[in-house]
Amino acid sequence: MMSGMWKTGALFLALVLWSAPALMPEGTGSGAAYAAVDTFEFETDEQQRRFRRMSDEFRCPMCQNTSLTGSNGGVAEDLRREIYLMIMDGKTDEEIEQFMFERYGDFVFYRPRLMWQTLLLWFGPLLFLLLGGWIIVGIVRRAQQNKVQEQVVLNEEEQARLRKLLDTVKDSD
């Protein structure tokens, strides 16, 4: 009984750890090769970091499966330039995201914005985790119930019946 509970717990924990990256999307993980060499000069490291991060998180509208960083497409080049200019102009990340959204819509975000349409996208993994946990708990509970039933001790009346049945089998031999 105890070991069953432990196993369930361990399994559940393993599932949680395994799916954790899906619950906390960090960057795009695209590891995009730096296809294009831009010669942008930044005043601070912070500006450069923001530029890198945003070029990684915006999707190239033309090539579709790469970020702005990884794309040599004409429009990607232009958009990198616009992002650079906006950063140097002192625009905030939110303002730059809004700029991109107004022109290219939700499509450009590799990290989807949290809206009711994207709720399933954001919390779907959590939903499946809970569903999986619920199913596992159900299976383990049922297995334990079966085990308990196996150990049922027969009362005297049932013992007598069992003996009688066994005897009939012997007789027929």
Binding site: V75, D78, L79, R103
Partner: peptide, 13 residues
Amino acid sequence: ENGRLGIDLGVYG
């Protein structure tokens, strides 16, 4: 020439 109007129009090609 530099595609700036294109960006404002949401053009990608």
